[in-house]
């Protein structure tokens, strides 16, 4: 290598590495980003089985049930168009209540149920999961009206 061109070579290596990182990131994002589904979308076009997704909606009144082991919980997340049964093993967030909003992180099982690894609910009276915050007031109201 001509010593004279060292700066150019270094710059090229850096650019190639960074572009490579960018392409790798783009490719990985396509396969690994988890998409957000409303119950209606989930029912109409279910995600592939086993792919990490988020499901957000209202927790149906009277749907929370605890299994005999005391820690497996099942409930229904719904909007005005569809209902999705969810199971979750774990401790629910403090403000997870029937009739209010929640987002479940997890995947679709073979039987169409949603198996959640994590439940996000309101942290305090001001906190709303990001996906639900983006909704216009009408959408949110519709969602809540659909729940009641």
């Amino acid at each position: 290598m001509k010593a004279k061109h060292q700066r150019l070579t270094l710059a090229l290596i850096a650019v190639v590495a960074l572009v490579g990182a960018g392409m790798l990131a783009a490719w990985a994002l396509r396969s690994q980003a988890s998409f957000f589904y409303l119950p209606a979308e989930y029912a109409a076009k279910p995600p592939e089985e086993g792919r990490a997704v988020r499901l957000g909606g209202m927790v149906e009144k009277g749907s929370i049930k605890t299994a005999a082991d005391g820690v497996t919980i099942s409930f229904v997340i719904h909007d005005d168009k569809a209902r999705v049964p969810v199971t979750y093993r774990g401790i629910l967030p403090d403000l997870f209540v029937e009739g209010s909003g929640a987002v479940a992180e997890g995947r679709r099982a073979a039987d169409g149920q949603f198996v959640a690894d994590n439940i996000l609910a309101k942290h305090d009276e001001n906190y709303v999961p990001r996906e639900m915050k983006g909704m216009t007031n009408e959408e949110a109201r519709k969602m809540i009206e659909g729940a009641s």
Partner: peptide, 9 residues
């Protein structure tokens, strides 16, 4: 589109 990116990425 609403997506979230986590540890799998």
């Amino acid at each position: 589109a609403k997506v979230s990116v986590g540890p799998p990425y």
